[in-house]
Design a protein around this nucleic acid. Structure first.
Length: 502
RNA sequence: GGCCCCAUCGUUUAGAGGCCUAGGACGCUGCCCUUUCACGGCAGUAGCACGGGUUCGAAUCCCGUUGGGGUCACCA
């Protein structure tokens, strides 16, 4: 065992590149986590490499099956597919760490045999006491004092009924690596002590299991959050140990992605609704929009464009172009990007996508009738250019699916109407009543003639009351089109009811 | 505190020594279009944290300062 880093970093390029996404299933998927998944996915697709999906569920306390299902749900919704891993299999099964214990045990034995990990009996309290007694700063942590325990000393501890944790023997050298997004980074020798990789009860920890799986699965490029930057030299030390023990052939390249920040200067916390992937889906973000916005957090496709498709991202994406600055999640900008993507949708596709939102809101039932479908097809194009998130379709369209008697007038729709609203409404009823062909152009023509030309009303005053009567909303799809869609009978019924309420 | 990372308009991002009198987008403001709200179009607003170097020339390279963040667990 040499006291230096002897393992080489991989030089894999192109289709030899293997990246992975390895979340721990704790809680709801976070947008920062999804951004990491996206960058890994895009890099694999760009290079023609392999995208591996592994689950790190070694913490029985915090992991849950429900959370695991949510991650699957999220990735499926977004269309981020993987080549190897959970549910699809591959040459390195299983892909859930909870099922890989036997593998870790083997690796641990090899590392023990090669002398790269050693038994450590001291408890946290004892370590603190040692430091105090030796005039060493407590913050420095473990002092590597058990590196050369004799068999007698070990036996003595065991006689006391103690079981050892296992620590990695860290080489006493500077550890340098070239971060794909930050450039060369060096951690001076002695920056951290020998660290625990296996608990006294034999349970391997993340510090072991994550690099071991990456090594065994042949991962060449580790793209992950900036919070793991400080643990990279530790992992390199472990890779080196595995290399010397003949377990792996290389150290992967590392790229640390910037944080996704929330308000203030804090990481977007799990408590913040904006961090929740499903919060955005529920509001009506479409995958295209959310992925596009997330990509913008730390990356850009070109100097003068920020709306692009996933395919265009794949074509252009390279980790080397990721910006190291932390990025703030800006809801307004995210909304704007999503709105752009909604407008890009094919109308039929758009129509299909708003249906679930209308169903969830109770505007439509589980089965959509032919009549309802016909209304949707006419109405969808009218709102596609005026909503930002899909859920807004509910407020825009609900009035089309109810009877005149069920229309309720919003307060803000009532406010600001002209004094002579009743007169205007009655005049509209009169002229619309005479209309045989109840279509947009005719409706507009007769209303214009009567209200604007003959009564001398301003368009704003003339149509405000009618909009309110028809939709009950201050904001609605275009008025004349809406009248055509709900039909003459409904239009007149609503206008009459409204006139009577004045 | 040790170690590490980061630093361009309010936000995000372009910028890898002269193309920068610093570009785009979101936001905000004004105007146009207009039956509301949007969409679209036009115009405007606003930035290289600070101080030293290096260089004929620095937003770009180096050093320092300041500020922010991360990490130092028998969590992941």
């Amino acid at each position: 065992m040499s006291n230096s880093i002897t393992a080489p970093f991989t030089t894999a390029t192109g289709s030899d590149i293997r990246v992975r996404f390895c979340p721990s299933p704790t809680g709801t998927p976070h947008v920062g986590l999804i951004r990491t998944a996206l960058f890994n996915w895009a890099y694999a697709r760009h290079t023609g490499g392999t995208f591996i999906f592994r689950i790190e569920d070694t913490d029985a306390e915090r992991d849950s099956e429900e959370s695991f299902e949510m991650i699957l749900d999220g990735l499926g919704w977004l269309g981020l597919n993987w080549d190897e891993g959970v549910n699809v299999g591959g040459p390195n099964e299983p892909y859930r760490q909870s099922e890989r214990t036997h593998i870790y045990l083997e690796v641990i034995e090899k590392l023990k045999a090669s002398g790269h990990i050693y038994e450590s009996y001291l408890t946290a309290e004892e370590i603190d006491e040692r430091n105090k007694a030796n005039g060493r700063a407590v913050q420095l942590g473990y002092d590597n004092s058990e590196r050369n325990l004799t068999e007698e000393q070990k036996a003595a501890y065991k006689a006391q009924g103690r079981s050892p944790a296992l620590r990695v023997r860290v080489p006493d050298v500077d550890i340098t690596f070239t971060d794909l997004v930050r450039g060369e980074i060096t951690f001076p020798a002695g920056s951290f002590p020998d660290f625990v990789v296996v608990r006294p009860n034999g349970q391997p920890l993340y510090t072991l299991v994550n690099p071991v799986d990456d090594a065994l699965m042949g991962v060449t490029h580790v793209l992950r959050g900036e919070d793991l930057l400080s643990s990279t030299p530790r992992q390199i030390a472990l890779y080196n140990a595995m290399f010397e023990a003949g377990i792996t052939k290389f150290i992967p390249q590392f790229g640390h992605l910037p944080f996704v920040m929330g308000e203030g200067n804090k990481k977007l916390s799990k408590r913040d609704p904006q961090s929740n992937l499903f919060h955005h889906r529920d509001r009506g973000f479409i995958p295209e929009g959310l992925l596009n916005y997330l990509a913008l957090l730390g990356w850009s496709i070109s100097a003068d464009r920020d709306v692009f498709s996933l395919a265009e991202m794949v074509e252009a994406f390279d980790v080397k172009n990721v910006n190291p600055n932390p990025a703030r999640f800006d809801q307004k900008k995210a909304d704007a990007i999503n709105a752009s993507h909604i407008r890009l949708l094919d109308v039929t596709d758009f129509t299909k996508r708003i249906i679930p939102y209308l169903q969830t809101a109770g505007v439509l039932g589980k089965d959509v009738s032919d009549r309802e479908m016909a209304i949707l097809q006419e109405a969808a194009p009218l709102i596609q250019e005026r909503i930002v998130v899909l859920s807004e379709a509910v407020g825009m369209l609900s009035f089309m699916f109810v009877d005149a008697a069920q229309i309720s007038i919003d307060d803000d729709a009532r406010a600001g109407l002209p004094e002579d609203s009743k007169e205007i409404t009655l005049a509209a009823i009169e002229v619309l009543h005479q209309l045989d062909e109840f279509v947009t152009e005719k409706i507009q023509l007769s209303l214009n003639t009567r209200l604007i030309e003959q009564m001398g009303q301003k368009p704003r005053n003339a149509f405000g009351p009618l909009r309110t009567a028809i939709s009950g909303k201050r904001i609605s799809p275009p008025l004349f089109e809406s009248m055509q869609i709900i039909g003459k009978e409904q239009t007149l019924a609503r206008l009459k009811a409204f006139a009577e309420s004045l």
